[in-house]
């Protein structure tokens, strides 16, 4: 495979929330690269830090106790974390944009669809209202919405869930961003509508070449949409690599457990594989590997010392002592 340019590089990112009940370490020492024109899937269970990673890249912590405490987020040679809020505003929505999970709650209920989408155009491009509206109509047509001319004058409540998600996608893509972050864009939708939206995202990506970070808890969606995958557990990356490699031969016991525990179509088993126990409480994190208490292959060292990343080349890494035959990443 040819080496493509990295459009985004996240290095040792840590994001904490400083709550009244203590510090919640939502993202801990996370590093990854997004190659130009490719799709990276971030997969993990709820509370694993997927969404906070997205918010860290977008810089959306206003009004929360969250803060990036360490690390670098390098976009086009610049560290986003060193920019002023004003400079980040110039990037947000223009170069890097985001689709949020719930199309029901993330649209403004009192603004017409057309006004909401043209907001981003007027903010980032030097165009007037009528020209912005022309762009809105065009992008809405690209997303396959019916009767676009009347939808621009309607409010979100008049649309169905799938239609609202198309509006969200249009809003995120209207300024032709270089990076699109999609946070669980199909989780709230029915399977047939999910298939429509995934198909739409694939077509739009082919046309525009946008690089995508696709956050989801569904391994099936990752297999279908992504080139690379990052598996998160307890605020950390556990395994990374090319989707085909990771799904064919998962290195980390957590990835193996996740894949084994979902019921698959056509596979009829008496009993499903289960990962025992629960995700640990963030305030009482185990000392060594965070997955060790639930891991069927845990050894003594796993409970004592947190494993580093072991590199197997080609972007393939695993944070597990079982993989210590790989090259250790400092």
């Amino acid at each position: 495979m040819t080496d493509r340019k990295n459009i985004l590089e996240v290095k040792n990112l840590s994001t904490y929330f400083f709550t009244d009940n203590g510090v919640v370490r939502a993202v801990e020492n996370l590093s990854f690269k997004l190659q130009e024109g490719s799709t990276l899937g971030i997969v993990g269970e709820s509370g694993s830090g997927k969404s906070v990673t997205a918010l860290s890249i977008m810089g959306l912590f206003k009004g929360t106790t969250g803060r990036v405490v360490e690390g670098e987020i390098i976009f086009e040679g610049k560290d986003l974390l060193k920019l002023s809020e004003e400079e980040r505003r110039g990037i947000r929505g223009k170069d890097i944009s985001m689709i949020f999970q719930e199309p029901m709650t993330s649209l403004n209920p009192v603004l017409k669809i057309g006004e909401q989408i043209s907001e981003a155009i007027i903010e980032h491009q030097n165009v007037g209202k009528s020209e912005a509206m022309e762009q809105v109509v065009q992008i809405l047509k690209d997303t396959g919405l019916p009767r676009v001319e009347s939808i621009v004058n309607e409010y979100p409540f008049q649309l169905s869930g799938g239609q609202r998600q198309r509006v969200m996608i249009a809003m995120a893509l209207v300024c032709r961003p270089k990076i699109l972050i999609a946070d669980e864009p199909t989780t709230a939708l029915d399977v047939t509508i999910q298939a429509q939206i995934l198909d739409l995202m694939r077509r739009l990506k082919e046309r525009s070449g946008t690089s995508i970070i696709f956050i989801t808890h569904s391994l099936g969606v990752v297999a279908e949409m992504c080139d690379e995958v990052l598996v998160m557990y307890c605020s950390r990356a556990m395994e990374t690599g090319n989707v085909k490699d990771v799904f064919k031969d998962p290195l980390h016991p957590y990835t193996r457990g996740l894949m084994a525990s979902i019921p698959k179509l056509g596979e009829r088993v008496e009993e499903l594989y289960t990962i025992p126990g629960n995700v640990p409480n963030p305030r009482f994190m185990p000392k060594g590997c965070k997955f060790a208490p639930r891991c069927s292959e845990a050894m003594d060292i796993c409970h004592e010392e947190e494993p580093p990343f072991f590199d197997f080349g080609g972007g393939r890494t695993s944070r597990c002592w079982l993989c210590s035959n790989g090259r250790e990443v400092k």
């Binding site: 239609q163 399977v191 279908e224 799904f247 064919k248 698959k264």
Partner: peptide, 25 residues
């Protein structure tokens, strides 16, 4: 048939024929 074909498979190599339903319920 459409419902079954809409489920994403976890095998990235599997290319099944997808029936994408138009419109909403």
């Amino acid at each position: 048939q459409a419902l079954l074909s809409a489920i994403p498979s976890i095998d990235p190599e599997e290319k099944k024929e997808r029936i994408i339903l138009e419109g909403n319920i």
